[in-house]
Design a protein around this nucleic acid. Structure first.
Lengths: 205, 205
DNA sequence: ACCAAAATCATCCTTTCGGATGAGAAGGCC
DNA sequence: GGCCTTCTCATCCGAAAGGATGATTTTGGT
């Protein structure tokens, strides 16, 4: 991956410069600094950053949380609050925008960088998350008789949409074995069919 | 929501106590403190915490990142690293476990609390967002021939785990009609079975 | 060594599902 | 009125899935 472009929204030029200095020495680059909401939206459109760092108070009518709300809803970019506001009211408003992180000023450089990196990594994963995996532990939490490892394997293949024969081939056993496992799965889940089983475990995942 | 239960994994009793004190005065409660990985796993099973705070170095063979990996894969709980390790190698290992946050020691109480709160809020949202409603628009985005309304109704019943007969009853039509719809759905989705259809649309939702 | 649980395989039989195909009725559109 | 799509229903057939039951082997624990 090449350089990662960060938009900084911060009305204090000194702090903005501080953040900029923090970021520019790694694989990050500051794509721009916005001192007010209008500038922020402009830069979001034109500079297409990969992530955003936001101060909350901007000395304007609209604050960082309002910007974040738009970023979350329309741009789907990861963003982090970097602010001195840690009061309940602000935090409650802020968390409703689903930020990737919240670093409190005065900030430690390491906190900012690690938060940012994790935000980007999590976001990248979410984009490519094409393989929803089942969890044996989670399923067994809801069952009086837990599924065995092997039964769980079968369930996963079922989840992938495989037929009994395909499972048998994939797991190097006979179809009869698969059928036995499936019968036991149905018993434990108390369902009569594949789709019913999948529908039942869906909410547990 | 009542009290939120946090598991703290930290081998230094002083820091553990420090964290505990931080947490106990708000709507959080420490469900337990684990000084080593074995204890951590035990408490995960027995205490069923809502979130985990992890130190990385535990003076054991397995470290906090190993624990986090299991938490992520099997327990699907939000967790935060609270550690003095901020070197590249550790961070690279840590971010692969998809933590909700990463707070660097010495930690500011506010950083920990805000990170934790946001982690929990984001996680709660993810859970409710996993709601069992399909979207016709979303599905049709991926299809050359879009599903009709009626076919979508059938697909939803399929998703709920119903049999053809159950669908027929619920939709006040004959089983034959259901079968025709299903045949058309399979054509459009290019799949041969119920489970394959569900597996295919899963990633689109 | 022994017991219990899990995993393996099998057979017989019934139900459900899926594929192929045709066809009538209702509604929108030019 | 013709044309197309959707929804409706049907029959026939073969494939897949599900229920019941019993047996052998592996494995882990006391």
């Amino acid at each position: 991956m090449s350089e990662i472009r960060i938009l900084v929204v911060e009305d204090d030029p000194l702090i903005a410069a501080d953040i900029e200095q923090c970021l520019n020495n790694i694989d990050f680059r500051v794509s721009g600094v916005a001192y007010d909401p209008d500038e922020a939206f402009l830069q979001l459109k034109t500079n297409t950053p990969d992530a955003v760092i936001l101060d909350i108070s901007l000395g304007e009518e609209k604050d960082g949380i309002d910007i974040a709300s738009i970023i979350h809803q329309e741009y789907h970019l990861p963003f982090i609050y970097l602010t001195s506001h840690a009061d309940r009211g602000t935090l409650d408003r802020a968390k409703k925008t689903f930020p990737s992180g919240y670093v409190v000023k005065p900030f430690d450089e390491k906190d900012l960088l690690t938060s940012l990196e994790i935000a980007l990594y999590n976001h990248a994963q979410k984009q490519t998350a094409a393989n929803p995996q089942l969890s044996l532990v989670l399923i067994n939490k809801h069952l009086p008789k837990p599924l065995s490892e092997r039964e769980f394997d079968v369930l996963q293949h079922m989840y992938e949409g495989k037929t009994n024969n395909q499972m048998a081939e994939a797991m190097f056993v006979s179809v009869n074995t698969i059928k036995t496992h499936i019968a036991n799965i149905y018993l434990k889940l108390d369902v009569p069919s594949r789709t019913a089983a999948l529908a039942k475990i869906r909410t547990w995942q």
